Amino acid sequence: MTRRTTTVWAAGAALCLLGIAGCTMASTDEDTSSADDSSSEQQESGAPDLASIPEVVAEIDGEAISREDFLQAYSSQYAQASLQAQQTGVPVDESALQREVAENLVTVELLER
């Protein structure tokens, strides 16, 4: 019962952090200018650029956060960001979103421990 309570608390805390990070995350000109033509084409088609995602996204005390775990979290965040991009006209900053999702996965893992 304690493990479940801790996991639920950690998930809630991670969602709060995700909300805060989403509100305070701002793109810089450097991040925006680093996007290449292929990623612009993929954004227009609605597909995220996943070519640069490694098999192991992060490692915490010898335990890996896999590409599959990352992609599961990233796909839902990308879909939400794409909807927001359509409404605002501002393209999705995929590199910032990928960094944010990876940081959140690490945070959740650390909170669970």
Rank of each mutant, 00 (worst) to 15 (best):
M1A: 11
M1L: 13
T2P: 13
R3C: 10
R3V: 14
R3A: 13
R4F: 11
T5N: 09
T6G: 10
T6I: 15
W9P: 02
A10F: 00
A10C: 03
A11N: 12
A11P: 05
A14H: 10
A14N: 09
L15G: 15
C16Y: 09
L18A: 15
L18S: 15
L18K: 11
L18T: 14
I20P: 09
I20D: 06
A21D: 10
A21M: 06
G22R: 07
M25V: 04
D29G: 14
D29N: 07
D31E: 14
T32K: 04
S33I: 10
D37V: 12
S38P: 04
S39M: 10
S40K: 07
S40A: 12
E41C: 04
E41I: 05
E41S: 08
E41V: 07
S45C: 05
P48I: 03
D49T: 06
D49M: 09
S52D: 15
E55D: 14
E55A: 15
V57A: 07
V57P: 06
A58E: 10
A58T: 01
I60Y: 02
A64R: 08
I65D: 05
I65P: 03
S66I: 03
R67M: 00
E68S: 13
L71E: 14
Q72R: 11
A73I: 01
Y74L: 05
Q80N: 10
A81T: 12
A81R: 07
S82Y: 15
Q84S: 13
Q86F: 09
T88V: 04
T88R: 00
P91I: 05
P91H: 07
E94C: 00
A96I: 02
Q98R: 07
Q98A: 03
R99N: 11
E103S: 14
N104S: 15
T107Q: 08
E109M: 11
E109C: 08
L111W: 07
R113F: 01
